[in-house]
């Protein structure tokens, strides 16, 4: 409650499958224990990159918008799309530029590299420390619950359909054991051929 990252609540998780990657978030926006909204999406699309921001909602909106500006400028200046690892380094630089007055956000980046076809997921702390993972990354107020679920459920080389089930179950069960994460879930599954499947999960509303 006295932690800015835990005022509004919310969590996100991203996982790598075989030639695909998935990223999911809850939809709750709260003020401490009071739920204010059940459709607060925390995943933002930047070309082929999907970035989830959890933490203080005002900073989530500010940083996601600032990233949109920087991403658009990059594509205009460079005349090419931004790869996920580039997006991750951009997020890292943005956060570290405020090292001594940070944004209270915990971002995740998920995407597939358009030249190598490699799936990519990366998580950050609030001052831009990058954690590039070969399996899954989590962030938000349900971090512990998500780690517990993902460590046990995750299997290598899941198909897009499998990946959807696993990441959804990870998110939903973790959310049920965190009072300030939940009110529905949103999952994006991104495949190598550019196909994106967005699904709105049914979940407990308490």
């Amino acid at each position: 409650m006295s932690n800015p990252s835990e005022i509004n609540g919310g969590s996100a998780v991203a996982m790598i499958g075989k030639d695909c990657v998935a990223i999911a978030c809850d939809l709750r926006l709260g003020l401490q224990s009071v739920t204010v909204s059940g459709d607060f999406e925390k995943i933002f699309q930047y070309g082929g990159n999907f970035v989830a921001f959890t933490g203080l909602a005002t900073d989530v909106q500010t940083v996601s918008t600032e990233l949109r500006q920087k991403h658009a400028l990059y594509e205009m200046v460079e005349e090419r799309s931004m790869e996920p690892n580039t997006a991750a380094h951009l997020v890292s630089s943005m956060l570290y530029s405020r090292r001594f007055a940070p944004w209270f956000v915990g971002p995740l980046v998920a995407g597939i590299n358009s030249t190598t076809g490699e799936p990519y997921v990366c998580s950050f702390d609030s001052i831009g420390s990058m954690d590039v993972s070969h399996d899954f990354v989590v962030t938000g107020t349900a971090t512990n619950q998500l780690y517990g679920m993902a460590e046990s459920l995750y299997e290598k080389d899941m198909s897009p359909e499998q990946l959807f089930e696993t990441i959804s179950q990870t998110l939903l069960c973790a959310a049920d054991r965190d009072a300030i994460t939940g009110s529905g879930g949103l999952v994006y599954v991104i495949e190598k051929n550019g196909k994106v499947t967005k699904k709105l999960l049914k979940s407990r509303q308490d």
Binding site: N144, Q145, Y147, G148, M149, E151, S152, L153, S168, Q169, L172, C173, A174, D176, R177, S203
Partner: peptide
């Protein structure tokens, strides 16, 4: 916190 949601999911089949 890590163990409990997994038990919910695998013992009581939550969600």
């Amino acid at each position: 916190e890590l163990l409990m949601p997994f038990l919910d999911n695998q013992v009581t089949f939550a969600n």
